[in-house]
């Protein structure tokens, strides 16, 4: 596809230039592209940017050269002023102003197209690291958001600096800290005093709870203990985990319909996102909120953003679908949002 695009852009050159060089240029581009790919994705990306911008500039120069209208003697490089450098070129002519203007527009259009293509590539994982690369560093410490959605993090994972909330995300230089006010994460709302919910953008890497505990030393229980924080954060989990042992036993699963009904504050027979611990949200955000948390997503079987009376009655069966190891109980790992890689 790149070669086809390259051949297409060659049409920007004058016909005489094309007839002499186009086939040769395409052959050289093909060889150089293969060489760049063999050196890795980043090299290939840099190569493509350099090639296509060089091609656009080359086309402008070739067109300007063809129209050589303002012949000027080779010696007339203009007066040299003190402290002003004189620029030399191999050209013995000056391009027409209209050619410069058209070239500027062409360059801007090309720059925009390359930027848009790059943005598209980033969002569609074209330039992503291949599976398995940097596995030891990335996979063990980070969870990765695959799409726009919500993510929860303990309040102890955030710190405040000069009034701006800084979210500690990991040790990787690129994501060491992000200013919530300015960065790729926008603070959506607080889920509770203990767990915050953020709306995140695709491909953002966040420090996994386990890695955070490894980084900050042994768990101190409260509030650094993510497991305890997590189970206290959602009213649904608080209700389900009646004995506060940070797991939902078989008995607690069977008793789910009763405890869920106790959360129905307005007694309308269904549980809204707000009754499940979320703030008042627009419809789409409400559905996204209910999809984010695995327990809520399982209970809201039809994904309409509410847990209906029939879904409440069917809660035990829905919760059992989360029991991945079939041991009859639900532990933290089975209740964490799926954001990419499993959390240790």
């Amino acid at each position: 596809m790149l070669i086809r695009l390259y051949r297409l852009l060659l049409r920007l050159f004058p016909a005489s230039y094309r007839s002499t060089f186009s086939q040769e240029m395409a052959n050289v581009f093909q060889l150089a592209l293969a060489d760049a790919w063999s050196r890795g994705v980043l090299r290939a990306t840099a190569f493509c940017i350099r090639e296509f911008s060089g091609l656009a500039l080359g086309a402008v120069r070739a067109q300007a050269r063809r129209s050589q209208v303002q012949e000027q003697p080779a010696t007339s490089f203009g007066p040299a002023f003190d402290a002003v450098p004189t620029f030399y070129t191999c050209e013995d002519y000056a391009p027409r102003r209209s050619a410069l203007f058209q070239g500027g527009i062409l360059s801007l259009a090309f720059f925009g197209a390359v930027t848009a293509a790059f943005e598209y590539g980033v969002n569609h994982r074209i330039f992503r690291m291949p599976p398995g690369a940097a596995r030891d560093t990335a996979q063990s410490q980070f969870i990765e958001t695959g799409e726009t959605g919500f993510v929860a993090f303990g309040k102890s994972m955030a710190s405040s600096s000069d009034g701006a909330l800084m979210l500690v995300l990991g040790t990787h230089p690129a994501v060491a800290a992000i200013d919530v006010k300015l960065g790729a994460v926008s603070l959506r709302h607080a889920w509770s005093n203990l767990v915050w919910v953020l709306r995140v953008h695709p491909n953002l890497r966040l420090l996994a709870p386990g890695a955070f505990q490894r980084q900050t030393g042994p768990s101190t229980g409260n509030p650094g203990d993510f497991e305890a924080v997590y189970f206290r954060a959602s009213p649904v989990l608080v209700a389900l985990d009646a004995d506060r042992d940070q797991l939902i036993s078989a008995g607690e699963i069977a008793n789910a319909p009763v405890v869920l009904k106790s959360l129905d504050k307005n007694h309308d027979g269904k549980l809204t996102a707000e009754e499940c611990g979320g703030p008042a949200l627009p419809y789409d955000d409400s559905r996204a909120f209910m999809r984010f948390h695995p327990v809520l997503a399982a209970l809201d079987a039809d994904h309409d953003g509410e847990i209906s009376a029939s879904e409440t009655e069917n809660a035990p069966a829905a919760l059992r679908t989360l029991d991945r190891n079939h041991d009859g109980k639900l532990t933290l790992n089975e209740l964490l949002p799926k954001l990419g890689i499993p959390v240790q």
């Binding site: 240029m25 350099r50 090639e51 911008s53 060089g54």
Partner: peptide, 14 residues
Amino acid sequence: VVLSTGTLYGALGR
């Protein structure tokens, strides 16, 4: 100095 094909063939043409 890494030349693009556009730059190279522009120079070769001149």
